[in-house]
């Protein structure tokens, strides 16, 4: 993509296009990735509610995995996950391992 020159940037960096954050993929910032352990998932959707971005895929009211294009690896989902009988349904794993 050709980057705009200074004459073409919008005054005050105001974003006038709704939903344009979709174009800004932030997944590369991640040092730890959340891994979904399906057998421990009780479908409480805490991960979806707590995610500061929109990195939790939900289909038909059920968590189905992560959108790694936007997940920055903050780990909030893993922290909040109640899991099943003390076993977390989300665990953080170091990237590149």
């Amino acid at each position: 993509m050709k980057l705009k020159g200074w004459k073409d940037v919008n005054p005050g960096a105001v974003c006038t296009e709704a939903g344009s954050a979709l174009k800004f993929k932030t997944g590369s910032w991640r040092a730890y990735r959340p891994k979904w352990v399906e057998e421990n998932c009780i479908q409480c959707l805490f991960c979806w509610a707590y995610c500061p971005d929109m990195a939790v895929f939900v289909k038909d009211g059920k968590m189905t995995g992560f959108n790694y294009d936007y997940c920055k690896g903050c780990g909030i989902c893993a922290l909040e996950c109640p899991g099943k009988k003390g076993n977390k349904a989300i665990v953080m794993e170091e990237e590149g391992k």
């Binding site: 980057l3 705009k4 200074w6 940037v9 960096a13 974003c15 006038t16 709704a18």
Partner: peptide, 29 residues
């Protein structure tokens, strides 16, 4: 008004993150 937040027909965001690829262009502008 220019790009007012209260114009709900034309939603806008103020204060985006502008990284190394664009910050200088905004300063020059």
């Amino acid at each position: 008004a220019l790009n007012p937040l209260l114009d709900i027909e034309h939603p806008v965001s103020y204060g985006p993150l502008i990284l190394t690829d664009y910050y200088m262009e905004y300063r020059k502008a």
